[in-house]
Structure formats: C-alpha cells, structure tokens
Amino acid sequence: MLLQTHQAEIETIIGRYPSKRSAVLPLLYLAQDTYGYLSPEAIREVAEILELPPTQVFEVVGFYTLFYDRPVGTWVIQVCDDVPCCYVGAEELIAALKATLGISEEQTTADGMFTLQRVKCLASCDRAPVVQANLDYIYDVHAERAEELLNNLRARAAEAKQRGVSGRFAEDYLLGPQGIVHIPRDAPYQQERGERK
C-alpha cells in the first residue's frame, strides 16, 4: 500500500498545495511508478488518500495520456508523428519499429518489453525524429537507428533488473547523497549553437 511504503513522500507532496485534490497528478505518478500501471485498485487507493470520490480520479486518468490504465511494456516507446517530425523521418521510423517489433501502434510485444505509441508533439522538433522511451528523450532517431535504439533499451532494462530497481519509470533515476540524480543516456546538447553530436 502506497501510504505504508511512501508515507513521507506523500505527505511532502500534499503539503505543497492548499487543497489535497491538487496532489492527484503527482500521486498517480507515484502509484504508476510503484505498480507499473494504474489498476482500478491503484486508482481507488489514490482517491482514498486524497479523500476524493473515485470517479474524480478515474476521469483524470482517462484524460491524460501519460497514465496507463492497463499493463504496458517495460519500455513505452512514443514516437512523435506531428509536423515537422512526420516530414523528416518519423513515419519511416514508425514503420521500421513496427516491422522490427512485429506489432502495431498501441500494442505490446509478447515478451512484455516494448509498447509502441504514436504521440502528438514532444516539443523537440529541432532534433526530429524524436522518441520518448518512458521518460527519456532520444533525439535524431532515423529509421536506420531503430534496431540500435531497441538494443540499447533492452540492455538498459537488463541492467536495471540487475540493480534491482523497481518500477518502470524509475530505472534511470538514482537516489544519491544530493537527492535524485538522473543518469543521462543520450548525448546532451553541445554548447555551440547548432552543432550536433
């Protein structure tokens, strides 16, 4: 139960707002990170913590695209297919991912590793085609990099399993002495304007 396992964190979150209801998105994230997806039980649990009618939490889950009310793969691969991405290689990338994985959009591979989604604007049009794998941005992923992308993600999942990191959105975040530290996986922007890795 979240309240037992994450009590301090939950209290901190609720303390940020004058109204408990405001904590619904952060607590849904917490539940999703913990359980892997938002089952009806998980949603009711969040409702109970926030003293809300369950329907008010169910409708929130349905409204926002980053909440999953059914099991998804270890990696949810989101590919932006908007203008301009779709004109600089996103469609080719989606086709390559579908062919390699043998699934269509919104499906999950049989081994439970990947769920593929077409999504709207990821706000990184300058480095299109762009993919968000769980919460990590991966830039300049042209179709010929599809295989490499999938292999990297598989390796990271294996590595996370070894570290015993639980929760599907948590594998890239470690708790260090200074708080949460993000392990960057993709080359950061170089300072020089316009120069790419």
Binding site: R16, L25, Q56, V60, T65
Partner: peptide, 23 residues
C-alpha cells in the same frame, strides 16, 4: 508541478484546473 500529457493545459485557465487536480 508536472502535468501528464495534455496540450490544453497550456491554456491558462485549463492549467489552473489541472493544477487543482481536475480535468
């Protein structure tokens, strides 16, 4: 405060609704 995937929340009053825990 992190949203959860909805362009409309950039509209200022929708943003406030979202921050209040509503649609």
């Amino acid at each position: 405060h992190r949203g959860a995937g909805a362009y409309i929340c950039g509209e200022e009053t929708a943003l406030m609704e979202s921050l209040e825990g509503k649609l």
